[in-house]
Design a protein around this nucleic acid. Structure first.
Lengths: 281, 281
DNA sequence: CAGAATATGCAAGCTAACTTGCAAGACATA
DNA sequence: TATGTCTTGCAAGTTAGCTTGCATATTCTG
């Protein structure tokens, strides 16, 4: 019975302090595994006695046994032996889909800075910040990202227009676009039918265009004014996820938040501070 | 100064028993790191006092310090976190948001297999495959993932119902749920208000429930029948992206496609083949 | 081989960590 | 608001693990 299962089993009866402890255990199991009950308690801001009691509540005979279980699960089980399996080749060999997927994602993410550099993102941020309205276009799976970006921009107080529908609908929604606006287009796989007309229209009225895209990015015609493109995970003909473009989009949003902060408030030191401020609930 | 260097420094003056101890430490550093002085002594066939003295001979103040050093060297430093840690700290220092974000994502993805194992995903796949209909629930940012999953399932010919709206609307949409159905719930941050009633209703009629979630996963009440949860990137209180849960969702979809393939066609060898077949356009 | 030096085990002592009874506080309930 | 239940921290008690003085065994040296 795993730690997570044990937590689930008693989830209903967890108190506030116990909840905090559980969170910490799940977030940093390796630290907890190597520390003492007091160190866990101290970092969590509760008394060590509560940690001891939690262990019993989860069905362990003592805190020591609890910690042993964490070690088993997060240090011994996840030891160097399993690490080998995490390599792409090994995972593919074993038909281990989860690990193969992860290996591919990590590989693609790691390569991302080779394709997109911070100054390009800065340019995009400046354009978006200066924009009166932001139009967002996506087709197929990419709508996943357009809804995400739309939500985030809205929360930052940006006026957002999500383009939807086909031909006539699109045309109508585009009527209002002006020189102060920016259009963001998510494009993967093939260039969608409406891409060219949309970009042409935007350029015609003097609006900015930003494409967030995969390997096709550079081949898009007409070329958008700004382009953030990086290959997605996997090889050309295999499964391609939205992880990489999502990272680009997140970086964009974060830098935008940071720049706006810079303008008004004092600069926050860490990403953590920046965001907990920005995304407070 | 590493353990090995310390050993080398006093190599000449090592006694027979000390030599045995050192051998064991070098052969199984991780076991030693997690054990006590007595356990090391016992396995080596010497007295625990000798282990204590060896620690001092190697220049440590106590056996505890010696063990801490072993832990640092063979567990902490070898851990998945540390590999990324350097990049992360450098990036954070320079305010390089893109690289910091990427480092965090990689760290979180790498830890994913510690929390979700393939057999759990298999269970979820079996439930989804057997389901007559799949209901999907998400709130806030999580809708990004629900739309993604809905699209993918639809493409696979699964009947999907995306739950939307509030109170009354939800209740109406839930009227039709039956024992053959499965409800998938995406839950991050706090447990949403409608979570409990939905799960209770589903369980009441005998439907399955699957939660895809972050660190709260195990603390959800009532507990879903199936749970796929892993901490998201970043620390508890900072920016958290959907990268990890998206990877879980992708793995789920892929394994589902594979199992369906298995049933009808011959098994495809690689993920690439599998998918280019499955997602051909 | 004798004597000294060193190594090792034993066991008592010590320390840090964990456990638990108790009381104060928080929260729900009537 | 009063009462009871539940939660939490405190502090004393307990335990496990580490240390160290001492005695015996072993090895080295002349």
């Amino acid at each position: 019975m795993s730690i997570l299962e044990r937590v689930q089993a008693v989830a209903e009866s967890l108190t506030r302090a116990e909840h905090l402890l559980v969170r910490e255990v799940i977030a940093k199991p390796r630290d907890v595994a190597l520390g003492t009950a007091s160190s866990l308690a101290q970092r969590t801001g509760v008394h060590e006695a509560t940690a001891s009691r939690l262990a019993k509540k989860l069905g362990f005979e003592s805190y020591a046994n609890f910690r042993d279980a964490i070690r088993q699960e997060f240090i011994v089980k996840a030891g160097p032996a399993t690490r080998v399996r995490n390599t792409l080749e090994a995972a593919a060999q074993n038909g281990d889909i989860l690990n193969e997927l992860i290996a591919r994602e990590v590989e693609a993410l790691t390569a991302l800075p080779d394709y997109v550099d911070s100054s390009r993102i800065s340019d995009a941020v400046k354009a978006l910040t200066a924009a009166r309205r932001v139009f967002i276009f996506a087709r197929g799976n990419a709508v996943t990202l357009s809804t995400m970006l739309a939500r985030r921009l809205l929360r930052m107080g940006v006026e957002v227009e999500v383009l939807s529908g086909d031909g006539r609908d699109l045309a109508e929604q585009m009527l209002g676009i002006g020189a102060d606006d920016v259009m963001v287009l998510f494009v993967f796989r093939r260039q969608p039918r409406h891409f060219a007309p949309l970009v042409e229209r935007a350029h015609h009225v003097g609006a900015g265009t930003l494409a967030i895209s995969g390997s096709i990015g550079p081949a898009l015609t007409p070329a958008p004014k700004l382009l953030l493109s990086a290959p997605r995970s996997g090889s050309n003909d295999s499964f391609q996820t939205l992880t990489v473009p999502m990272a680009i989009t997140n970086a964009l949003v974060l830098m935008m938040a940071q720049m706006n902060q810079d303008a008004t408030l004092e600069r926050l030191e860490t990403l953590g501070e920046l965001i907990s401020n920005f995304e407070s609930r």
